[in-house]
Amino acid sequence: MKILYFAWLRERLNRASDEVDPPPEVVTLADLVTWLRQNDETLDMAMENPAIFKLSIDAHIRPLDTPIAGAREIAILPPMTGG
């Protein structure tokens, strides 16, 4: 599956996306975030407070307890500021 990073998260990671193949025990978006953070120190530091991020599955924002089975694309969206 493809993981997309947006806004300041993309800039901090210095990449727009990753292709990943999570293990079978990664079932939900919350599991995925935990697994991604465990396997990437830079992402772990950038997502120190994962509760502030929104996640989408195939372009639809979903709660963290949503299963990821069948997902083609998951986006991690940091909070935005603007004015």
Rank of each mutant, 00 (worst) to 15 (best):
E48K: 12
M80V: 15
L64A: 13
R37I: 05
L55W: 00
P63Q: 04
G82N: 12
E41W: 10
E25L: 11
L43Y: 00
S17F: 12
I76P: 03
S56Y: 03
R37L: 05
W35L: 04
D44L: 10
I76C: 05
P23L: 12
G83R: 14
T66A: 09
R62I: 04
L32F: 02
N14Y: 11
N14D: 12
A30G: 09
G70C: 13
R62G: 07
R15K: 07
I52V: 05
L4H: 03
D58I: 08
Y5K: 04
L36S: 01
L29F: 08
P50W: 08
H60M: 14
D44Q: 08
I61Y: 00
E25Y: 15
K2S: 04
P79N: 10
P23N: 11
L36G: 03
E73L: 14
Y5E: 01
H60C: 14
E41M: 11
L77G: 07
I68E: 14
V26G: 02
L29V: 03
S17W: 10
V27G: 05
T81L: 15
W8A: 13
L36V: 00
V20T: 03
K54N: 02
D65K: 09
D21Y: 12
F6M: 05
Y5G: 01
F53P: 05
L64N: 11
N49D: 08
D40Y: 08
V26E: 00
L43P: 09
R72K: 12
T42N: 09
I68F: 14
E48A: 13
S17V: 05
G70H: 14
P63C: 08
E73I: 10
I68K: 13
I68M: 15
R15T: 00
R10L: 09
P63A: 08
A59M: 13
I52M: 06
D21W: 12
D18C: 06
L36K: 00
A16R: 06
N39L: 02
P50L: 06
A30M: 02
E25R: 13
R15N: 07
K54M: 03
D44H: 01
D18Y: 02
V26N: 00
T28N: 05
N39K: 09
N49R: 09
A59R: 14
I76D: 02
